[in-house]
């Protein structure tokens, strides 16, 4: 098959129309830039809240009573006090140290076995304080950067009414 004029125009340069493609590409780029948002990573803390209260009776020896942590609120939901079994603590770091003493931190990354913490919080307390307390009892970063887990079983006492 012979193309018409192939002998005369064999040296012509075929030019692609770049303008529409560049237009679309820039529109796509604008769309992605406008819809881009930086989302910081999030993590979860599992809490144990069974549907019904545990059946009454003599608890087994293996079943340890929960460690009770009380958080009280001041005006505006600010933290007023941290109590570990009625003993007042100065900070969440103190709470972490006390939990380390109670459950031991030799368990490594798998956690401290059956230890359980029950949080009893004032109704108006800002939720961020609870999260700080959960963080304090959950573990800490070792000097080598790994996470040492302390308590993984967390539950809440019934809410205190306003």
């Amino acid at each position: 098959m012979k193309f018409r004029g192939s002998g005369t125009r064999s040296g012509d340069k075929i030019e692609l129309m770049m303008t529409p493609m560049i237009d679309v590409v820039f529109q796509l780029l604008t769309f992605f830039i406008m819809t881009f948002k930086i989302v910081s990573p999030e993590g979860d803390f599992y809490i144990k809240m069974p549907l019904a209260a545990p059946s009454a009776g003599v608890p087994s020896d293996a079943q340890l009573p929960p460690i009770k942590v009380r958080l009280t609120a001041a005006a505006g939901g600010r933290l007023a006090g941290i109590y570990l079994s009625e003993r007042r603590l100065g900070s969440f770091e103190d709470l972490r140290q006390q939990i380390r003493l109670l459950v031991g931190d030799q368990a490594g990354p798998s956690g401290a076995g059956d230890a359980e913490v029950e949080f009893d919080c004032d109704y108006d307390l800002n939720y961020e304080n609870v999260m700080k307390a959960i963080t304090a009892v959950s573990g800490y970063f070792a000097p080598d950067g790994r996470i040492v887990r302390l308590v993984e079983k967390i539950k809440f006492a019934p809410p205190r009414k306003e």
Binding site: D124, M131, P159
Partner: peptide
């Protein structure tokens, strides 16, 4: 309010849910 979060958990429990995670 922490009490409000706890009420939300209770509401979910009243429907039958038992597993919760705090994000």
């Amino acid at each position: 309010k922490t009490g409000r979060v706890q009420e939300l958990i209770r509401t979910c429990q009243s429907v039958g849910f038992e597993k919760f995670t705090l994000r």
